[in-house]
Amino acid sequence: MHQIKTLSNRIRKNTGVDSIRCYQCGKCSAGCPLAGDMDFTPNTVMRMIQVEEKETDKKLLQSEAIWLCLSCEMCISRCPMEIDIPKVMDFLRQESLKEGLQNKSANHNIIPFHQSFLDMIRFTGRSYEIGLIADYKLRSKKILQDITLAPQMLMHGKLPIFPKAVKNRKNIKEIFKKTNML
């Protein structure tokens, strides 16, 4: 039973990525722009998946690394085994949310930002910066962030005050409803 439930198996099933193919050469970590800032580097992430231990799986889903990953795809573009680490990272983030294991630090910044972004699309069909920033500030409680940048952007016409929404908003709402159900 445990065998089926391991993260490694879920990853294989959902993304098609077979983590056991990783032979730990470390080329991903060597090229990763944020490896130095991560709690677990990309090759360590792959190793943690390989060991198939409940505790390790949990530790991984709680890590900040999975949220720091920029999806820049440098790792896979140079991976000798062509292992799609970005795809694995996407899956890990979604699993982390699903199991409520979000990393504490990321939960204050990166995660609320993504959520605010999706909220914006849900409501308007497009991203709308002022709304996004406001929403994010409320979620992250970082009211003062970028307080000097915003007026500058405004003055340069880079922050439209009114959202330019999709006309067929119903369609967008439907999409969100359906995909959340899927």
């Binding site: 949220w67 999806s71 996407d90 983030r93 979604q94 949310l97 930002f113 993504h114 959520q115 972004f117 999706l118 914006m120 699309i121 069909g125 497009r126 991203s127 999709v166 006309k167 067929n168 967008i172 995909t179 959340n180």
Partner: peptide
């Protein structure tokens, strides 16, 4: 009537 592509947020979360 185009919409947002979902950018980073969408493939990170859903």
């Amino acid at each position: 009537d185009w919409n947002c592509c979902g950018a980073t947020a969408a493939h990170n979360l859903n």
